[in-house]
């Protein structure tokens, strides 16, 4: 059964587009037919993160205005996965170029063809956001362990619930467990307690995100990246909601332990150098 997810956050810059690209690539890597819809009209970026920016001919607005033959003409097939497609946003138009009703119709058309439709929502809670959520069955909210991002996420949860979209789950992005341990960053439990929604996964802060976005490839393909690892677990859970949740804690503890070991080691080294 196909599902339409909207990836949203309220606040900008928390990692919506990165999450969309990685979840899409992850689902495609397990053989699912996936389409990513960039609903951030005027500020398109999902194409860049997937390295598909040079292949765009038609875009979302062209499809909705029927300037091309159906959505299929605008779809771009991913370089790495046969079953992953991108429907890019228009770059020259603004967000008013789209009507909510048209978006809903398009999503219903896409769900017939694909196992998963992932919509990359624009930041904010205005028209563009409303257009992005209208055709979705479920919402994935991305937030950072930071008060402004959590507050905005709460606002988005409120709007989604008032639109009768009550299937909402949360991804906490850019967590630094060493800061949580030191009492300087909100923990997963803090955020879960405040927002009272299910946590789908936790993505640790990882410099490799930047490394891979520079190259235009999803970090989920990197077997040695902690963030990639986290996204792989989220994909499993997305595919099978029964997937156990202990994994989050394990990876968190593992990361913490290794950090403390690293800290000890580096301090010992410094002490030795100082002594000699």
């Amino acid at each position: 059964m196909s599902k339409v997810f909207v990836v949203t956050s309220g606040k900008g810059g928390v990692g919506k587009t990165t999450a969309t690209a990685n979840l899409g690539a992850g689902l495609a890597s397990i053989g699912k037919r996936v389409v990513l819809v960039d609903a951030d009209i005027g500020l398109r970026n999902l194409d860049l993160l997937l390295g598909l920016e040079n292949r765009i001919v038609f875009d979302l607005v062209d499809v909705l205005d029927k300037k091309c033959r159906g959505y299929k003409q605008a779809l771009i097939r991913d370089k790495r996965f046969e079953s992953l497609f991108l429907l890019p946003a228009a770059q020259s138009k603004n967000k008013d170029a789209v009507k909510a009703e048209q978006m809903k119709e398009l999503m219903d058309e896409l769900r017939k063809e694909f196992d998963y439709v992932l919509i990359d929502c624009p930041a904010g809670i205005e028209g563009g956001f409303r257009n992005a959520i209208i055709g979705a069955d479920e919402a994935i909210i991305i937030t950072n362990p930071e008060i402004s991002a959590v507050r905005d996420a709460d606002r988005v949860v409120g709007i989604l619930e008032s639109e009768n979209k009550s299937k909402i789950s949360l991804i906490v992005n850019r967590l630094r467990s060493e800061l949580v341990k030191k009492g300087q960053m909100l923990s997963i439990d803090d955020i879960r307690g405040i927002l009272s929604i299910d946590v789908l996964g936790v993505v640790p802060e990882d410099h490799k995100i930047l490394f891979h976005s520079n190259k235009g490839e999803p970090v989920i393909l990197d077997k040695f990246s902690p963030a990639g690892d986290a996204y792989r677990k989220i994909v499993k859970r997305l595919h099978d909601p029964g997937e156990p949740h202990e994994e989050i804690k394990q990876s968190k503890n593992g990361g913490l332990r290794s950090f403390l070991l690293k800290l000890m080691r580096s301090t010992m080294e410094k002490l030795e150098k100082g002594a000699s």
């Binding site: 709460d154 803090d190 405040i194």
Partner: peptide, 23 residues
């Protein structure tokens, strides 16, 4: 350093009471 995590959590809790009631 002081525990800014607790400060953040408390500030967030209070502001959300207000946000939710006014929204």
């Amino acid at each position: 350093r002081e525990n800014t995590r607790t400060t953040a959590r408390e500030r967030l809790r209070l502001v959300l009471i207000h946000d939710r009631s006014s929204v």
